[in-house]
């Protein structure tokens, strides 16, 4: 869906991205994570040509965008950012309708779409006629995301979209984004400096450091043994193995042998870290999993499905 081919970006003398290549497949939620100044936002802004590469190519939907019309390309790609940037003189509905209006949709289609998006983002329909200043921080972020999704783009770029809200709202918004991604299967590029957010949301995690990609893969693979040391430090929170177990479903380590009688039962959606936690709590070294006939011995848990 999106491909970066040996892309280099310089701002003056400093290089923001250095010979970066990356593939993002359709339907992925690709989390770009790294410390500030690592080039993650630059990488995101290459996709809708807010930044142009000094060398290399960026392909979107298989086409080199270097010759595409910038504004037209941007209208076909959703964009949401930390500072939201809602237009203060326009109502929530008008803000959401910005891109459809530019694309020349008719009024009834726009109104229907706005109502749909308010529902999708869990916003009260009564907010439609409010001005942005009447919104809470979390509501404003949701409206910003609704505006990005308004013209139903197949690609959504998100630059720390939950950075400016309190931790509780942020948790809610993350869950919402996971649900929206699951419902719409859009290709989402998400910039974040929060390792937990990257691991929780990303189906594909890219770790950047000083303008280079140091790790690129599924969350569990990136913090697994043999992964890049910097990426494991950044994402592992000092316990990369435990983090990894928390990303793997318990069913992955299920053994064919039946569980011993009286073994504690895990819910079907539990992770391997949950299994470990139950073992530590109960003292049992072999568990059952709800709805499955096999058993979960501690050795298999520790092997972590490897």
């Amino acid at each position: 869906m999106i491909a970066f081919e040996e892309v280099t970006v310089r701002f003056g003398a400093t290089s923001a991205l250095d010979d970066v290549s990356l593939q993002v497949r359709p339907g992925e939620l690709c989390a770009l994570v790294g410390p500030s100044g690592s080039g993650k936002t630059t990488l995101l802004r290459l996709v809708n040509r807010l930044v142009t590469p000094h060398a290399g190519r960026v392909l979107v939907r298989g086409e080199d965008i270097s010759r595409a019309d910038g504004p037209a390309l941007r209208r076909s790609i959703g964009y949401a950012m930390q500072s939201v940037g809602l237009f203060p003189h326009r109502t929530v509905a008008q803000n959401i309708a910005t891109v459809p209006r530019m694309l020349g949709w008719d009024g009834t289609r726009i109104a229907r779409r706005v109502a749909e998006l308010l529902a999708l983002l869990g916003l009260d329909a009564a907010l439609a006629d409010r001005l942005p200043r009447a919104l809470s921080g979390g509501q404003a972020q949701r409206v910003g995301i609704a505006r990005a999704l308004a013209a139903d783009p197949d690609i959504l770029l998100m630059d720390e979209p939950f950075g400016a809200v309190d931790p509780i709202t942020r948790r809610g918004l993350r869950a919402e984004l996971r649900r929206i991604h699951a419902e719409t299967r859009k290709t989402i590029l998400l910039v974040t400096h929060d390792p937990e957010e990257a691991l929780e949301l990303g189906t594909h995690v890219v770790v950047l450091r000083e303008g280079r990609i140091v790790a690129d893969g599924s969350p569990a693979a990136i913090i697994g043994p043999g992964g890049d040391g910097f990426a494991r430090d950044l994402l592992g929170g000092g316990q990369p193995a435990l983090r990894r177990l928390s990303l793997l479903p318990a069913t992955e380590a299920l053994q064919p042998a039946p569980p011993p009688p009286g073994a504690p039962e895990l819910p079907a959606a539990a992770s391997l870290a949950d299994a470990l936690s139950v073992m530590a709590e109960t003292g049992c070294d072999c568990l059952a999993v709800a709805g499955h006939s096999g058993s979960l011995p501690i050795a298999a848990v520790l092997r972590g499905g490897r």
Binding site: N48, L50, P71, R74, R75, S76, G85, M102
Partner: peptide, 17 residues
């Protein structure tokens, strides 16, 4: 608001618009 201008650009408004 610079954020509103940045957002306008990012969602595909041209300079004149």
């Amino acid at each position: 608001d610079p954020a509103a201008v940045a957002a306008a650009q990012a969602i595909g408004m041209g300079e004149a618009r």
